[in-house]
Design a protein around this nucleic acid. Structure first.
Lengths: 195, 195
DNA sequence: CGCGACGTTGATTTGCCTCAACGATTGTGG
DNA sequence: CCACAATCGTTGAGGCAAATCAACGTCGCG
């Protein structure tokens, strides 16, 4: 863990096996970055140029609607990949912001480098296909929840699915992720305490 | 278009280029199936053994909650892939149903065949990675909509994004997709007609 | 210390759901 | 080919879950 390369390689080795030269190629495109709490990794309006892997800390991706309310698209803690994928793929300005909820360290891969990597080391297609499959399934479940469950049920699902996140993330951020107001979430928690 | 193989190969050629032997390999794993309107392609409880490509017609994937209400996860028309991905990946019983809203024709690929295909023709990793990226982005936008928009805004987004779907799908199915009751959607449309 | 971020609680409003009834259309079996 | 049931959309009345608006306490930090 002292070496951040160790951490990311371990994660990758869950899905694919790389030769030594491929490992070197991969390492060479990683750019290490530190973010202070509240610091932006990406601001809406800029183009998302990087795919980012969280080494340590916690990020949030969110949109801001016309009346200034924030809506959290996803959280990303250690071992998660994050970007505004639409912006990253199309080169159009990002609609999402990404910033740090804690002091955070990431590896960033530039788009060109990632595309070269896909060609030089086809295994990466396989890995990201698998990661995307998992993310797709998780998102689908979130959608089903949001159209079929009450606020309380959604909150219960959330803490069951992400018990550790619940610990380190402020309540109002969780509320925003679930599409609730902080007041409503507070009342739900009060309800549940009576048991 | 008379030959269904033509149709699917054309779709695939948007993303990858295959050699003649690879094309043959691919064709050999496709299983052609016809579904009558209302017929199931997958029933909750069964394991999703196939990834399915829609040649003609329209499918819906949906869950049924404890009190019997259906919630539409996605529609799939010509050119779309559909399965209960979680069940397909893990081999656990499906939580989703998939059935036909119209008479429909599909190509199905069995899981084992698809995995072999990934190994024999690595380009398919690339293609499905790209398709999943697009699906991921679309889902993310649906999530943002569902936690930040009013019912009317969501409906407007839907008909803007999928103008053709709006034509061929019953209103109550659209309502279910949006997480609304048919009554609410009917009232929204009445509202909008006043303009 | 004083300010801003965060959570809580109360009073009120509102958007959407529920329940119920009805017309139009489709399709199906006698 | 008609009669009947089922499906689908519409409209109305009433209820409820969650939002809004507002006030207040606590904590941590510059």
């Amino acid at each position: 863990m002292s070496d951040p390369h160790e951490f990311i390689l371990q994660h990758i080795s869950r899905h694919i096996t790389l030769s030594e030269p491929d490992i070197q190629r991969f390492k060479s495109v990683l750019r290490y970055r530190k973010l202070r709490k509240r610091q932006y990794l990406l601001q809406a309006g800029d183009v998302s140029l990087y795919e980012n892997f969280v080494l340590k800390g916690c990020l949030r991706a969110y949109t801001v609607d016309p009346d200034g309310t924030e809506h959290i698209v996803m959280f990303a803690v250690e071992g998660w990949w994050v970007s505004d994928l639409y912006s990253f793929l199309t080169g159009t300005p990002a609609t999402q912001n990404i910033d740090a909820l804690e002091d955070t360290e990431v590896f960033s891969i530039e788009k060109n480098d990632l595309e070269k990597l896909y060609q030089q080391v086809p295994e990466f297609n396989r890995m990201f296909r698998i990661l995307l499959q998992n993310a797709f399934v998780a998102q689908q479940q979130r959608i089903i929840g949001s159209i079929s469950q009450t606020a309380e049920e959604q909150y219960t699902s959330f803490i069951t699915k992400y018990p550790t996140l619940e610990q380190r993330i402020p309540q109002n951020q969780v509320a925003s992720y679930l599409g609730l107001t902080p007041e409503t979430l507070s009342r739900i928690r009060k309800q549940q305490a009576k048991k």
